[in-house]
Design a protein around this nucleic acid. Structure first.
Lengths: 202, 202
DNA sequence: CTCGTTGTATACCGGTAGGTACAATTTAAG
DNA sequence: CTTAAATTGTACCTACCGGTATACAACGAG
């Protein structure tokens, strides 16, 4: 009996705002004052809705993976597009987001990496970040191994190797974007890497 | 008259220790407790010798540029070595350092980049970091423009463009190394980029 | 030795971090 | 309207941040 006062804010909207703050400042750099202000709520509301800063970070990270990272990965599996073009589309999509003016910049995962290494991020969030970090690697490798076009081109033997090369290059673009490198330069880099791989395999 | 007590520590050793801490944790992440503990001194000694945290950071960053960054750049100007080989030596040297077990990892400049963007680094240090960030770019461009072999290969017209590509790729390797990518993979990436550039120019 | 100078050690300053106790307020069931 | 459950805002907790006042220890000149 009795079901209490209604929430005066939307949890999902608030979570998106928190994601942006973490994305801009990292886990340690984002203070509760920063977070709650941008979320439009006060601290007790945050604690009752999300648990604590760590739990909020975990949920915000999951939100990033679902809404920001997945669209890029989907381009790798677009139907009716050749392997090479899909790879390019995928990488250019990442470059494009990194260089856009709206929203936060830089790779969420790369941004948190230094905090991971110095042990400033709690255990549960650390596990999630490491799992998320492994996703593109797995997908790239899997794609190279199972894609018909890849096998036809004789790429299967060097699949893992090439997947790793693309994956590392892709991760690099995030750091470059955050260093103020512009879009054209990044696209040129992506082209160069793709050309390099083609050369080595033909 | 009277010349006071002698210092019980070596300033240069202490500065190197401070550099390592900043390198691992960034400017904001490195607390005075972290710093002074690793430097083997207490806070008043640090303040009397270096001024404050900001001044210490500026000196530590200068130390990084002189002792860590310069050796890599020197490889670009080695005598009796071809341009392509010098570029490769230079990039592999960076990869090698990033993947070594001793000392801190990652690019000092990339590490501090997020703090730069969120305005957490004081003005003087910010200027120094931005200048340092521009050095490799300038050197790469200059090298492409003035190197006889480069001109002979007809690279001069696309010099700046290629320099930027190499520069961005190089910066990317630092982020990759910090993400746990191993040495062989990074070397493979460097090879791919160099191959890609050769393809585009011949 | 005395004395001024310099470095070291401890304890402390105001400010802010993450987190919480508590009272006031809103809601719906009875 | 009463009442119990849930959310809200304010004020506060301890811990640590960068920075410093102060007392003490080590030195060299005279």
């Amino acid at each position: 009996m009795a079901s209490g006062r209604k929430k005066a804010f939307d949890e999902n909207t608030a979570l998106n705002a928190a994601m942006d703050v973490f994305w801009q400042k990292g886990y340690v750099g984002a203070s509760l004052t920063d977070l709650t202000q941008r979320m439009g709520i006060n601290k007790p509301s945050m604690y009752s809705s999300f648990g604590n800063k760590e739990a909020l970070f975990v949920k915000a990270t999951q939100c990033y993976l679902d809404t920001k990272m997945k669209p890029h990965l989907d381009l790798l599996f677009a139907e009716g597009v050749g392997l090479k073009q899909r790879l390019k589309n995928h990488m250019m999509s990442v470059v494009s987001m990194q260089c856009s003016d709206d929203g936060a910049k830089g790779c969420y995962l790369v941004l948190c990496q230094s905090e991971l290494e110095s042990g400033e991020i709690p255990a549960e969030a650390e596990t999630l970040l490491k799992q998320a970090d492994a996703i593109p690697k797995q997908i790239f490798t899997e794609l190279f191994k199972t894609d018909p076009e890849s096998i036809e081109l004789g790429l299967n033997t060097k699949a893992a190797e090439n997947a790793l090369c693309l994956y590392t290059t892709l991760k690099g673009t995030a750091a470059m974007a955050r260093s103020g490198v512009d879009k054209a330069q990044l696209e040129y880099s992506v082209d160069a890497v793709l050309a390099g791989i083609s050369t080595q395999l033909h």
